[in-house]
Write a protein that binds this DNA or RNA. Sequence first.
DNA 1: CGTTAAGGTTACTATTTATTAACCAGGTTT
DNA 2: AAACCTGGTTAATAAATAGTAACCTTAACG
Lengths: 116, 116
Amino acid sequence: MKQYCKFESALDILIGKWKPVILLQLIANGAMRFSELQKAIPGINKKMLTQQLRELEYNDIVHREVYHQIPPKVEYSISEYGQSLGAVLQVMNDWGTAHIDHMNMLYGAEDRSEQE
Amino acid sequence: MKQYCKFESALDILIGKWKPVILLQLIANGAMRFSELQKAIPGINKKMLTQQLRELEYNDIVHREVYHQIPPKVEYSISEYGQSLGAVLQVMNDWGTAHIDHMNMLYGAEDRSEQE
DNA sequence: CGTTAAGGTTACTATTTATTAACCAGGTTT
DNA sequence: AAACCTGGTTAATAAATAGTAACCTTAACG
């Protein structure tokens, strides 16, 4: 009966206000430098970008490559191991897409951005 | 390139300190009443239990069945539609299990509960 | 008539997360 | 020499999330 009991460890590494969009960027664009990510993600600030990248790096999802130059250059990319997350995201995406439809069916398709 | 762009909508319904454990309970035990959930989940309080259940109910993952009796009886269960989440949890669980191993490999298996 | 029962709600506090803005390094351009 | 570049860090603040404790309902029990 403890079938799904470890799904939280997958959940944990995706949780964080900016992690999904960071991953999406890196998946779509391959290696990106810090400033490119910052430009590509409106509303994010350096601190959050650093912090979320560090957490993804700690989990070996993202690889950080430092070029010792002045001014510095640092590139982030999905790590070899991180690629394995693709299948998970795919399944979540498929279900998520269907879920949006399901919710529209239940509550109507008016673009309500709030719940309550 | 917008392959996984909706995976956040799946993520959203799983986010919340108690949602995973509530789902796990309901998956394992079928219908459970409010007080049974409260007993089964150490540390949770009425407010949080109600709130998380309401969010799951709003997303049609959990079904709420009220028995009009005194004292009241309310049973919660995974809804018909909510069953479809099972496949997602399964994939996340499998990856999560492997990820725990991967992290142990990277950082050693000493039971470090903190990062940093 | 006060207490108990189940399943909540409410107002208030505490803890966690996220945001803002200022600062740093060290070489290059003006 | 002042200002700019990138990729950060730090301290302080705001916003969001979670936790505590007291209260509510309606009927039955002692």
